[in-house]
Design a protein around this nucleic acid. Structure first.
Lengths: 157, 157
DNA sequence: CATGATCGGTTGCAAATGAAACTATCGCCG
DNA sequence: CGGCGATAGTTTCATTTGCAACCGATCATG
């Protein structure tokens, strides 16, 4: 009967098998390809695009809420909002109850841009995932969830 | 009998389920945690650390070869090398056959630093992977390989 | 063996980033 | 009330980044 054994570190570091490294390369490739398109076609940076996507789904969030939801720095979010505002792509109102807080929503122009980008982003994701079997896609989903949780506790210290 | 059907894009973009986004958040968390440690303990940036790991495994590579192997920009590699050189952590010689080319190796001091960091990095990776079952770890390995290939062809256009 | 294309590597510059300081508002407790 | 710590969001500044232009060395071709 096999003995349950704790998972052990590899004995030697081989960069091309090191998971954090592989994740980083993969992510840079994917994000880079998407970002190039957002920029070329709509003059959007990645943070701007993420803020748009978040507001499209949850209109009325505050900047801090967007930052928390997207795991971006609050400064990054602040600048993305400023950029979107400048381009007339979102509206900002002050919350009546708490006047520190901004209530953010996509403007009609913002919605229009978003509705043109979203299908493109989904199509790219689809193309990426099409290289996997359905079982692998389910596994990926599950792994991302578990790893994210593990990474969160890793980061704490 | 089920009909084989092509994988389709999701009908609506939901940021927290969008794979490129999830990968990005996960990677930033992990890399951030590692980078903080490298910097605190040894004053190493991530590119420097990667160059060291590459040279530890393949001594004598040129800067371009390191860049290719790590998928980093050649400018990034050049600066990482300059930093490591300044800190006395690597030696650079000119290739006799092709005098454009630099032959890079870790110095004794560089080896010493590396030998102290590598176990730490591996221990962190291990802690991350410990949250997965052995089958999940195998699946992760496989997925990273497949996705990386898919991403490469995605990036082309 | 001349010369134009190419490659290895560095530098300049403009944009992105993030930590820390700052402003304005809020909630709480005396 | 009054004032003090916490929170929302912006600004500042120093650092990092990456593209593009560049320099010297090499290669390929005639």
């Amino acid at each position: 009967m096999p003995v349950a054994r704790r998972f052990r570190p590899a004995s030697q570091l081989v960069l091309e098998r090191f998971v954090p490294y592989r994740l980083s390369v993969l992510t840079n490739r994917i994000s880079g390809a998407l970002a190039a398109h957002y920029r070329r076609r709509f003059g959007l940076s990645i943070p701007e695009w993420r803020v748009m996507a978040t507001l499209a789904r949850f209109p009325g969030l505050s900047a801090a809420a967007v930052a928390e939801r997207t795991a971006m720095d609050k400064v990054t979010v602040s600048r993305a909002i400023a950029g979107l505002k400048r381009a007339g792509r979102l509206g900002r109102a002050t919350d009546g109850r708490d006047r520190r807080r901004a209530v953010l929503t996509l403007s009609p122009a913002g919605c229009s841009v978003y509705s043109r980008i979203a299908p493109f982003a989904l199509e790219r994701e689809c193309r990426l995932l099409a290289s996997l079997t359905p079982a692998e896609r389910r596994a990926l989903d599950r792994l991302l969830t578990k790893l994210d949780r593990a990474a969160a506790s890793l980061a704490e210290f």
